[in-house]
Design a protein around this nucleic acid. Structure first.
Lengths: 196, 196
DNA sequence: GTCTATACGCCGATAGAC
DNA sequence: GTCTATCGGCGTATAGAC
């Protein structure tokens, strides 16, 4: 994943800075400097017609990289008992969220209805993860109504999202748990609910 | 809670706007206008020496209003069975979070280590809620180790935080569940874990 | 305490040389 | 494609009249 073109570098550095500082707080000059161009020169505008177009390109690239909704039921089914599969699934969901860290940060720091593209990308991510988890739950607990499986999934995803949100805000070691411990507890909680 | 002084109105409107748009994206002129002053006039600077001092005053007011850590174990203990108490406790935790909406929004939109005051206020809130919930759990499940009770509490609080974070980002009706349904599922999940 | 007026800097974006 | 130079606008903050 070595960046070749200046355009790619601009997108990468812009998304990194947008995530760290927010869209408005990041200046075009700063992005240019991070991409190895002279800060303050309008060099960026030979690749994007505006700063907003650059954000849109970054979101679109993130959406392109995002694989199609995986059928987690097929991926993880039959690997072992419920707790084992659930732990693996939790690690997988954390990994997906970490791939989308920049998007999550940008979404959190974008004033509500400012960018429809950002909101749509965020909604698609969360809804997709909930659907995947709900699907897997339904496979293990056929006796559960679909709405129940969905509710458990929403809560499970929110628990993972809340963890990453907390890490973004604390940014220090904080009082947060280690990922391993958190996932263990997450597995225990959801496993007990699904079995019941 | 009718605002009397101009200073109070400035703080209230500033915190509202900071929450909606973020600190940097909110201009002093906008705050002045919202407080009924002439936008662009430096009238604000007769009450605060800078925009940053205004934010600090807002955070401090939020901290002052925040009651001392309540002993939820004493508040909710003996009201009924575990599920009943847990539901009430969940409603209470949601209510506390909703009182702190502005702080949560500001924290989310403040670029990491920008304001130590904001980070400290956020950390104190989350740590306090986790401690309260862990305390209550320990009361119902004496057989559980303290570290286990704490882990369950962290996950429970994160699940509630994740829900409110999602509401802040969707801001539309979205796919989110109704509070009632979400709390029901939250209660079921944590209840099953505590009993086990 | 609030106003008008203004200083001064930074930002997004454009023009034109190379 | 990247640079220097620059325009116009908006941002924070200040000075001084009332």
């Amino acid at each position: 994943m070595v960046e070749t073109t200046t355009r790619d570098r601009l997108v990468s550095e812009a998304m990194r800075l947008f995530g760290q500082q927010g869209y408005r707080a990041t200046s075009v000059a700063q992005i240019e400097a991070a991409a190895g161009l002279a800060p303050g020169s309008g060099a960026l505008y030979h690749h994007f017609k505006s700063k907003e177009a650059l954000l849109a390109a970054g979101i679109d690239r993130q959406l392109d990289r995002r694989g199609a909704m995986r059928d987690v039921r097929a991926l993880f089914a039959g690997l072992g008992d419920l707790d084992t599969e659930l732990t693996l699934l939790g690690r997988y969901l954390f990994a997906v969220l970490d791939e989308e860290t920049q998007l999550l940060q940008i979404a959190a720091r974008t004033p509500a209805g400012q960018s429809a593209r950002v909101a749509a990308a965020y909604a698609a991510l969360v809804d997709g993860l909930c659907a995947e988890l709900a699907d897997w739950i339904a496979g293990w607990a056929p006796h559960l109504a679909d709405t129940d499986a969905h509710r458990i999934a929403v809560l499970g995803i929110n628990a993972l999202l809340g963890n990453r949100a907390g890490q973004m805000l604390y940014h220090g070691p904080g009082t947060q748990l280690r990922d391993e411990d958190y996932l263990t507890e997450w597995t225990t909680l959801l496993g007990a609910r699904i079995r019941a």
